[in-house]
Simulated scan of single mutants.
Amino acid sequence: MENIGEGDMTRKEYSAGAVKRSFWFAEFRKVVNLLNSGKTLNEIKTLNLEENIFSAPTQARAIQIFNAVSSRVKNIDKSFYQLFERCDIANQKIIVLTAVMQSDSLFFDFIYEVYREKLIIGDNELTDRDFSIFFKNKQLQSEKVASWTDYTLKRLSTCYKTMLMEAGIINRAIGNRKILKPILDKSLENCLLANRMEITLHALTGVR
C-alpha cells in the first residue's frame, strides 16, 4: 500500500470517503457507552434503526453515521472503550481522532506527514498551502489520488480542517488555523503503546 510503513495499523487503500463524514464525537461516545454496557455492534445497529439513537434527520443518514462510527470503533482495540469513559473530553476527542486515523490511511498520512512535522519544527500554523502541497504529493505517489478532481480535493481539505478543529488540535478563532498540541493523559499514552501504536502517538505529539 502507499507510503508510511507503520507497524501499528493495517494500511487501507486511499479513499475520499471522508467528504461524506463528520467527526461524530457524540455518536462515537454513544456507541462506546453502549458497548461498555454490554451491547454488541449488531444490537446497536438494530437499536439505531428502531430508535434513531443518533437523532439523524433520515434513516439513510442514521445508517451512514452508524456505518462510519462502527468502522472507527472496530479499528481500535477494545481496551480503548473502557479508557474512553475514564478520560476527560479533550482526551476522549483524541481517542475519536485516533479511531478516524486508524480507519482512513490518507487522513493518517496527513496527521503524520503534515501535522506532526509542524509540531517538530515548531510551526504553529496550518495553512491552505499545507493542504494543497500534501494532496499534490499524494497525487504523485498514488494513481488513485491523481484521478480525483480539484473539487474533491478541496472538499477533503475542508473536511480535514473541520475534523482537526472538532478534535481540538487546531483553533480557527486565533488568526489563521493555530495548531494546539494535545496534552495526552498518561493512561492514553500507555494504551497506545500497549497496542503497538507508537507511530500514532508520534504523529499526535510531534516526535521524530
Results as ranks from 00 to 15, higher is better:
5 G>R: 12
15 S>H: 11
99 A>R: 06
135 F>T: 01
10 T>W: 15
184 L>T: 02
116 R>E: 08
174 I>D: 13
167 A>E: 01
96 V>M: 01
94 I>E: 01
138 K>N: 06
171 N>I: 13
201 L>A: 05
157 S>D: 12
128 D>S: 11
108 F>Y: 14
1 M>V: 11
105 S>Y: 10
190 N>L: 09
62 A>K: 04
17 G>P: 08
208 R>P: 11
151 Y>P: 12
118 K>Y: 11
63 I>Q: 09
65 I>N: 04
2 E>T: 14
28 F>L: 01
46 T>E: 12
109 D>V: 03
171 N>F: 13
93 K>S: 00
51 E>H: 11
74 K>H: 08
205 T>R: 05
135 F>G: 00
18 A>Q: 10
208 R>S: 13
100 V>Y: 08
76 I>F: 07
41 L>A: 05
140 L>R: 15
193 L>F: 09
61 R>K: 07
46 T>R: 08
148 W>E: 11
122 G>R: 14
181 K>V: 10
38 G>N: 08
5 G>Y: 10
204 L>W: 08
58 T>S: 00
54 F>C: 01
205 T>E: 05
113 E>L: 14
120 I>Y: 09
132 S>I: 14
195 N>Q: 07
95 I>F: 02
39 K>C: 04
40 T>M: 04
208 R>Q: 14
163 M>P: 02
166 E>V: 03
131 F>D: 00
139 Q>G: 05
25 F>Q: 03
110 F>D: 00
3 N>F: 14
70 S>V: 00
30 K>V: 05
19 V>H: 07
75 N>E: 12
206 G>L: 03
189 E>S: 04
123 D>T: 13
56 A>I: 03
80 F>G: 01
208 R>I: 13
127 T>W: 15
65 I>L: 06
110 F>H: 03
111 I>L: 12
127 T>Y: 15
1 M>Y: 15
14 Y>E: 08
169 I>H: 02
189 E>V: 04
